[in-house]
Simulated scan of single mutants.
Amino acid sequence: MDRRILTASLIRATRDAPSHGWVHSVPDSRVRIVPDCRVHSAPDSPETHPEPRRAGGEVFSETREKTAASLVHDALANRPLGPYFATPCGILAPLLKQLQERPDYFTVSREDNAVGEASGAALGGMLPVVLMQNSGFGNSVNALASLIAPYRIPMLLIVSMRGVHPDPTPENKGMGDLTEPILDGLGISHRTLHEEKIEHQVAEAFATVEGGDVSALLVRPDLFGWSA
């Protein structure tokens, strides 16, 4: 059996124990409730991967979505990365929509839990990917600082950036200003994705992860078509 599929199966089996308090996607039901966790929708739910339209008429550009998100997806899929642990994010929704078709894709309710689960996969010989928004990046800092960074556990972080141009929302400005300095302070290499350089930038990040370290790819608010 393919090692990534086996790992994914083991993770699913482990999560079936309710005492762990994990939230995960369930293919044959709309919602699964686990004690001590929030209710989370299955991966095909519009709550998890919202349509490319935001409240107040803010919309995604369909052309940009099909271009940049697909380029990132293909660059990831062409490399031996996985499993994928993602927290819901509107900016990343076009990419998550494509990744959710994978058997090793998991929706996780908290960013620190996603990092913890990814570390287990990495210790099992995998090259995991964690996807999150920087508004929740703060939840993962302790896990990154006390486990991932000091022991250089290999994984790829894909972090969408709120609070930077063209996102004017004041409640996100703090993390917009702090995300890159925090990564620098932890010694985690990072790159801001540019549409014309996606393949090259993913290749560089993958080389870092394959070499046994952690790396981050940052996604601008408008890369996949989001606009305020």
Rank of each mutant, 00 (worst) to 15 (best):
M175Y: 06
P221E: 07
K197F: 12
I188Q: 00
L193C: 09
L223K: 00
G116A: 15
A216K: 00
V39L: 05
D104M: 11
V209G: 01
S70T: 15
E204A: 09
P128H: 07
D44E: 10
P83L: 05
L193D: 06
V72S: 04
E196Q: 11
E196W: 15
L71T: 07
G225H: 04
N113K: 03
L81P: 02
E171G: 02
T63K: 03
T48E: 09
E51G: 03
S160F: 06
G163P: 00
R38G: 10
Q201V: 09
G163R: 04
R152V: 07
T169Y: 14
G174Y: 12
N139L: 11
N78L: 13
N142A: 14
A205D: 01
S61M: 10
S215I: 13
D16Q: 08
S146D: 13
E65F: 01
P221I: 11
R53W: 15
M132C: 04
E204S: 07
A122E: 10
D222E: 15
V59F: 12
A149W: 06
I11R: 04
S61E: 09
A205G: 02
A13L: 11
D74H: 08
A69F: 03
V39I: 05
L183R: 01
P46H: 08
T14V: 10
E111P: 00
G174D: 06
P128Y: 11
R79Q: 14
N134G: 04
T107V: 14
D104I: 15
L157H: 03
P154Q: 08
A93S: 09
V141T: 06
